[in-house]
Amino acid sequence: MCGRYATTRSEADLSDLFDAVDVTEGLTPSWNVAPTDPVPLVRISQRHDARVLDTARWGLVPPWAGDLRGGARMINARSETVSTSPAFAPSFARRRCLIPADGWFEWLRSGKDKQAYYMTPAGGGPLAFAGIWSAWGPESVLTCSVLTTAAIGGLARVHDRMPLILPRERWPEWLAGGGDPGALLQPMTERELAAIEVRPVGPAVGNVRNNGPELLDPPTASTLF
C-alpha cells in the first residue's frame, strides 16, 4: 500500500512540470501526507479544456456514499481490480489523474521493531503516481486514490506493494480516459525502477503531527538498497 508520502513542490513548479493550469489557490508543502489530507493532483478539466493542477482530499469517496468518512479507507486502489471494483471502476474509466510526489514511506517490521524507509528518485526528480478522482456531495468535494501495484526489485524488500508510477510519456494516455486497462496499468520495469533509492529515516514520520524536511533525514549513516 501507500499510506504516507511527501509532496513539497510549489504550485508554480507543478504547473510547469505537468503543463497544467493552476486552480489550486495555493499549495502547502507536506513531508508527511496522511489519509484525508488535501493533496495536489493533475486532471483534465472540461471547463478549462486543458490539464489543471487541482487539490483533492486523499481517500476517494464514491458519489453514492453517505458521507466523507469512508475516504480514510480508500486512499489506495489496487491496479489488479480497479477496473472492476464498484467503488473505483467509474473513476478509472472517466476520471483518472496524476498525483505528484517526491517519494513515499513504508515500514519494515522485524519482530516487535519496525524501521521506516523513504523511496525517492536518486536524482531528486519528481514522481507521478497513477490516480483516480471523484466528486462528492452538493459542493462537489474532490477526493482521490493512489493506484498501487506489486513491488519489484529492491522495493519489494520493504513492502509487497508500491504506487503505480507513470513516466512522462504515459501521462497523456492515462489522463485521456478510456483505453485498454492492461496497457494502462502496466507497471514500470525493474530497470526503470532502479533509479529509485530506498533510504532509512527516523521514527518521527510515524506521527501524523510531525511534518518537515527533517523527516527525510537518516537515523544513522544512509544505507541504500
Rank of each mutant, 00 (worst) to 15 (best):
3 G>E: 06
4 R>S: 10
5 Y>R: 09
8 T>G: 09
11 E>W: 07
16 D>G: 10
18 F>D: 08
24 T>A: 14
25 E>I: 00
25 E>D: 10
26 G>L: 04
28 T>F: 00
29 P>S: 10
32 N>P: 00
34 A>V: 03
34 A>N: 06
39 V>W: 13
40 P>S: 12
42 V>A: 12
47 R>L: 10
51 R>M: 10
51 R>I: 13
52 V>I: 12
53 L>Y: 12
53 L>P: 00
54 D>K: 13
55 T>E: 08
56 A>S: 06
59 G>L: 06
59 G>N: 06
59 G>I: 08
60 L>K: 04
61 V>C: 01
63 P>C: 01
73 R>C: 02
77 A>W: 12
78 R>A: 14
81 T>L: 14
85 S>D: 08
87 A>L: 04
92 F>H: 07
95 R>Q: 06
98 L>D: 07
99 I>P: 00
99 I>D: 06
100 P>N: 14
100 P>V: 09
101 A>W: 07
102 D>Q: 06
107 W>T: 01
109 R>F: 04
112 K>P: 00
116 A>V: 05
117 Y>I: 00
117 Y>D: 04
117 Y>S: 05
122 A>E: 04
122 A>R: 11
125 G>M: 10
126 P>R: 14
128 A>T: 09
128 A>D: 07
131 G>E: 06
132 I>L: 11
135 A>D: 01
138 P>Y: 02
139 E>K: 03
144 C>N: 05
146 V>R: 06
148 T>Y: 12
148 T>K: 12
150 A>V: 13
151 A>F: 10
154 G>V: 01
160 D>C: 15
162 M>D: 07
164 L>F: 15
166 L>M: 08
172 P>K: 14
176 A>E: 07
177 G>T: 03
178 G>F: 01
180 D>H: 11
183 A>S: 12
183 A>Y: 01
184 L>E: 07
186 Q>L: 14
186 Q>V: 12
190 E>V: 15
194 A>P: 00
196 I>S: 04
207 N>Y: 00
217 D>Y: 02
218 P>S: 11
221 A>L: 14
